Simulated scan of single mutants.
Amino acid sequence: MDSPPSVQDASPQPDLWLAAKRSPKPKPHYAGHRDRLRERALAGGLAALPDYELLELHLFRSIPRGDVKPLAKQLLARFGSLAGVLGAAPEELKTVKGVGDALALDLKLLHEAALRTAREAVGKRPVISSWAALLAYVKTALAHEAREQFRVLFLDKKNQLIADETMNRGTVDHAPVYPREVMRRALELSASAVILVHNHPSGDPTPSSADIDMTRQVVDAGRSLRIAVHDHLVVGREGVASFKALGLF
């Protein structure tokens, strides 16, 4: 009959135990990726990075550890582009796994910075002479909004921007517009002209028949008050449609 193992026989061998203790844990596949990406950004400039890597760099600040490349690519796939990610509402951003309140706020911070930069370019010169800057501004503000908004740019006698105000927010395909309210606000601001702006969440900026009818009502309301309607811009992900360029009024 075999004798039971001694306590000494049951304990691990000292040399094997020390080897296991000293053996380093395998590094994750993304080890060093953050440093390499930062070095590439510094060497080649941020403009040389693709969208997902630019987004990664920003995510590094919000998520201090781990591999954020999958999250960056998932956000771009969900919202279609970097502009789509930044333009998405916080509630929409948080539908993506890994995005919480803090990260959603960080992403919206970038969007707000871009919006203010674009607005500054519009506000310092007559709007009519800085049309490209105006189109860039309205695209930044509205191209990726999930719900329709109706905004009005109020201009002074020199066609400089007095105010940009959201007159109404609506559903995915409709935002009620009241011509009298537009003109009442124009009088309060001593505006000489307005530019109407609204978005199509579908992405297609083609004006609808309802858009055309509403615009004519605003033009008629302003005529007796000598408040001009310079244009009506319809913003979508596919571009910006100008009523004036289309010959609609």
Rank of each mutant, 00 (worst) to 15 (best):
L115C: 10
E238G: 03
A31S: 15
V240D: 10
Q217T: 08
A163V: 01
Q13P: 07
D164K: 06
T171A: 05
R38M: 14
A113N: 08
R185V: 04
P28G: 05
I195A: 03
Y178F: 15
D101I: 08
A31R: 07
V172W: 14
K139N: 01
P176C: 01
A245E: 12
D213V: 11
K73H: 11
L189D: 06
A114P: 03
R78S: 07
D211R: 08
G236A: 09
S6R: 12
L46G: 03
L86H: 06
R180I: 04
N199K: 03
T206Q: 11
E56S: 08
P207T: 03
G44E: 13
H58E: 13
G222V: 00
V235A: 03
G98W: 02
R226M: 14
A210C: 06
V138K: 05
I227S: 10
A41S: 09
N199V: 01
S129H: 14
P64L: 05
E181L: 13
E53F: 11
A136Q: 02
F79C: 03
L153F: 04
L82K: 06
P50V: 07
L16V: 04
T95V: 06
G236R: 00
M167L: 10
P12A: 07
P205D: 07
E39N: 09
E181V: 03
